[in-house]
């Protein structure tokens, strides 16, 4: 499967969830993720949490912001350790938004064009699906390749991961 081509700056990206509603990555989120693309051999792996809203009147999800690499993380060219700071960031967002901004999943980068999850990635995804606390039964996982991103939906009920298709307005 080909990766999503990088959009011109200032465009939200949408994926169709398995329930046919959508997850929307805000243009500012896309811009941030694109900054961490490992498109030069000097750039190390990056990652963080996806945060945003469960929208009213349906089951659309809006990713409004992400946590970015911070103290306590460990970063190399091919690995990323997400430290404790990300939870603190998520809790701050939750409090500041009076309990609206939710934890929706996580993201990290790959130094290749076609992002595919590694066994280490699947281990992390399975672990957080099972042991984290979050709203609903799904978490979303983004891998940022050198050309663009790909998104998987994880379900806590059967522990499966489904790669989502990009959604374009009709």
């Amino acid at each position: 499967m080909s990766p999503q081509i990088v959009k011109s700056v200032g465009q939200a990206i949408r994926y169709t969830k398995t329930d046919k509603s959508r997850i929307i990555f805000d243009e500012a989120v896309i811009d941030t993720l694109m900054c961490y693309r490992q498109n030069s051999s000097l750039k190390v792996e990056a990652g963080g949490l996806l945060l945003g809203r469960h929208l009213k009147g349906g089951s659309h999800i809006a990713v409004d912001l992400v946590s970015e690499p911070m103290r306590g993380d460990r970063r190399t060219r091919t690995s990323f350790f997400r430290g404790r700071g990300h939870e603190r960031f998520a809790h701050e967002c939750w409090h500041n938004s009076k309990g609206v901004f939710a934890y929706l999943g996580n993201w990290h980068t790959h130094p290749c064009m076609y992002p595919l999850p590694s066994e280490t990635d699947f281990d992390d995804w399975r672990n957080v699906l099972k042991n984290d606390i979050y709203e609903g039964k799904n978490l979303y996982f983004v891998i940022v390749g050198t050309k663009g991103l790909a998104c998987w939906e994880g379900c806590s009920q059967h522990g499966k991961f489904v790669k989502l298709e990009e959604y374009i307005f009709p």
Partner: peptide, 15 residues
Amino acid sequence: AKASVLSLNNTGSSS
């Protein structure tokens, strides 16, 4: 948006 629960986030590794 709807209200959400306070999360618990484990640390983790990716590659």
